[in-house]
Each structure stands twice: as structure tokens, then as C-alpha cells.
Amino acid sequence: MGLKMQKIKKIAPIIISLIIALVLPIFVKNNYYVTLLDQALVNIIAVIGLNFITGLTGQVNLGMAGIFAAGSYTSALLTTKLGVNCWLGLIASIIVGIIIGYVLGYPSLRIKGIYLTLTTIGFGEIMRLLLTNMVNITGGTQGVLGIPSLSLFGFELNTPRRMYFFLVAVVCLMAWIAIRIVKGRWGREFKAVLNDDTALASVGIDISKVKLNSFILCSVFTCVAGSFYAHLMGYIDPSDYTFDMSTRFLMMLMLGGIGSVPGSIIGGSIITILPEILRFLKEYYWLVFSVIILIIILVLPYGLVSIKDLPFVRKLFGLNKNSLGESNE
């Protein structure tokens, strides 16, 4: 009985959030909000990826825009210029993701901390400049127009609403994979790198391989997100994939709570949706948004999932310390 209850307890939040996710479009009539939710879901996939490298192994990756762009452009160029099937395009972008993971992960074997951050910034900038200037291949700032929407067994995912349900399924799948990884051997190794990599090496684990794995996971997830983004928007151009985009992903990760998959989901949705809600503030909205995020960083550095660790919140819900760990992982 006790075991069963525990299982139910664990599953309850997941089921509730799933129900909300599936019921939401019925209440949201406006296509604008549905597109927004789509974007939030795409961002969530990327943030779940970022969580592996930044959240778990603690290596700050500020080249997310470059990886995301690689995923978008692989899919977009293959489908528009070569007429490849969307799903093959997706697979191609996963392969590109693996390659980028190796390329970016390789330096991480030699360098860490701020140096790695600078490498990723350099990668992101080079990627953007190449996309902008290699006009013959990428179309330059003209962008890629007319990217076809995904189709599932002959069923066109051509409206935001259809895409929404598809993306909810994808996010569930991705989150499930991510949670499996986080809770599994790899996840423990990742966290060990964050805490003390010398100790890890002394028990005979190859740190470089662990870091490489986390980089590959991150870039695969991000490339998948990028690919969906391209199909969702139908048009991409390099001006979106700036340093700002990289920091936005980091914000999502951090707002939700680093190291936590549910946190990534919360952060991804809030950072995507909040600026749109704040639009009524007119020209001040971006300022207000930035201030809100900065305050949250200062007050709650471990993100919104850590809100239950605050004394007064715990009193409110009468939580004891034992029930904390589970959802944080």
C-alpha cells in the first residue's frame, strides 16, 4: 500500500501537468497564444538539453544559439533545397548535433570553467557570422523561406494547434529520456564532475568521456529543438541566432532551477511566455522583464523549483525535508 501510494504521489504531478497541457488548447482560442505555446515547447526541448551540460556538469555553455542554428539550418536547407523528407532532415540534424557535440566537447577535455564558456561564445559567433555571410549555401540574411511543415503518417502538422499536440508528445518523450539519463549512471557521473572531478578520476572514471557525453546530449537535444523550430516558423534567418538567444536559454535553465528537468520545463515556458504577457507595459516591458529575472536570480539562485526550500513556503505546505529530493532530480 505504502509503495503504491508513493508511486501515485510521484506520478500525480506528471499526470496533472499532462492533463493541463492537453486541455489548454481548448481554452486558448487565439492562435497567437497557441504559437507561443509551441515556441515554449521547442525552447523546453533545448533547455532540457542545456541542462545536461550546464545544469549537471556545471560547464556554462553560451554557444546555444550556434547549436540551435545548426539544427535549424540543417533541417531547413535539406528540406527546401534538396527536397528531403522532413524526418530525414530531423535525423540529419541529430547527426549534426552529435558532430557539434564532439567538436565542442573536445576542447572541454583540456579546458574548463570560464575558458570553456569563452569557447562556446566563440563557436556561437562564428556560426552566426558564417550563416550570415555564406550566401550561396545559407541564403545569407535573406534567410530560408518556405520550410515545409512536418507531417506525421500523411497527417500534416500545418496549424499551430496540430503542431502543439505533436510537440507536447515530443516534450514528454524528451523529458522522459532526460529523466532516465539524469537518474541513471550518466546523470550521477555528470553531477560528480560538477562536484569534484579529481575524485571522479580517482575512482577510475574517464572524466573526458563524461564531459563529451554531456556535450553530445546537449547538442543533440538542441539540434532537435532547432529543427522543430525551423518547421514551426517556416522561415529562418541568421539575425535570430545571436548571443542574446544563448543567454535566453541560460535564463530559462536558471529560472526553472539548474539540474532539474521539471525546472527546465517551467523555465522554458515562463521565459517564452512572460515577455508576451508583459507586452501591455509597452516600451517598458523588456526592462520590467529583465528586472524580474535579475531579482529572481539574486533571491532564488536555484530557480523556481527551489521555491519549496524557502522556509515560509515549506511552512505553508507543511513539507518536511525528506520529500524534497525527488522532484529536484
Partner: peptide, 22 residues
Amino acid sequence: NNLFVVLGTVMLGKIIIELCRI
């Protein structure tokens, strides 16, 4: 983790730019 400082300062930068504009 230096992540916090990275993000904190990035947000500070955004705030400065918006303030300059206003």
C-alpha cells in the same frame, strides 16, 4: 557555480541598455 554570475551580469547588461534607451 559561475553560472549565476554569468546570468546575473547578462541581465544587468539588458537592464542598462533598456535604461539608456529610456
